[in-house]
């Protein structure tokens, strides 16, 4: 009886989680412009449209530019913040961690309003720079968390061992701490990139027409008219997500292999 309840709830939950995308994404190959089954024939036209007609390609390139910039800035500030926080005292660690993580819990609309207001007053609203900075703030906590995790996982004896062999602080950091924390930096960078690449709300506030990102294009498309092109774009984005997931998996496997046996 209890097993039956478990299996039924598991199957239903799995269907709820997986089915929508599995059902909807194949419609990107449907010849008909009606998004419904049965499919009327196989076509790649919708992908062709996505690649050739505005706003998709420019928006995709904008997204790449913004996400790349945001990830770089986020890695620098989140990484430095994590390293500085690791070196400070117990009380300092609590305060600093709270500060550096806090953008995660602030609703993105609130952040969007704040960025728009302050950046607008400072005179650089509505451009790449404002979007990169805003997305970097959203991504920095993720880098911070992932670098903190990998730094905390380091055996403090390793640093001491290096010191006992005569290595200076800077040399120790460069040859021991940094290489071992590298997977944390890369994971953080990946998170920051994806966060920016998928971000809609803040982008809706900040993006000027010429810096429209892919999520904004998708959002307007969805509000406007639901066409198969949107599903084609969604399918490609899903494949991109799958790729990110595989890269992340690989990163984690690699760091696990190296520290295994301890």
């Amino acid at each position: 009886m209890s097993r039956a309840i478990y299996w039924i709830s598991l199957v239903l939950s799995m269907l709820f989680l997986a089915l929508p995308l599995l059902l909807v994404l194949p419609l990107a190959f449907n010849e008909s412009s009606f998004l419904t089954y049965p499919m009327e024939g196989f076509t790649l036209d919708w992908f062709k449209i996505a690649f050739t007609q505005p706003p998709w390609m420019p928006a995709f390139l904008n997204s790449l530019k913004v996400a790349f910039g945001a990830a770089v800035v986020a890695v620098v500030i989140g990484g430095l913040a994590a390293m500085g926080t690791m070196l400070s005292g117990r009380f300092g660690q609590i305060i600093l961690s709270g500060l550096f993580i806090s953008p995660i819990v602030i609703p993105s609309v609130v952040l969007g309003v704040a960025f728009t207001y302050a950046f607008g007053r400072a005179g650089f609203g509505g451009g790449y720079i404002s979007l990169v900075l805003a997305h970097a703030i959203l991504g920095a906590p993720l880098v911070f968390l992932s670098v903190m995790t990998s730094l905390k996982g380091l055996d403090p004896e390793l640093e001491r061992a290096a010191a006992s062999m005569g290595a200076s602080r800077a040399y120790r950091f460069r040859t021991v701490t940094l290489p071992l924390a590298a997977p944390g930096f890369m994971t953080g960078a990946l998170f920051a990139f994806v966060t920016s690449f998928d971000e809609v709300v803040v982008a809706l506030f900040l993006a000027a027409p010429q810096s429209t990102t892919l999520p904004i294009a998708l959002f307007s498309g969805l509000r406007d008219r639901l066409e198969p092109t949107i599903i084609a774009v969604a399918l490609m984005l899903s494949l991109l997500s799958l790729m990110f997931l595989l890269v992340l998996n690989w990163l984690q496997q690699r760091s696990r292999y190296k520290t295994r046996g301890k």
Partner: peptide, 22 residues
């Protein structure tokens, strides 16, 4: 699912639930 964009998943539901949807 976690890594798939919110917009992509939301749009799947729109296609699924709309008046002449799946």
């Amino acid at each position: 699912s976690f890594w798939t964009s919110i917009l992509v998943r939301t749009s799947a539901w729109v296609v699924l639930l709309q008046t002449h949807g799946l």
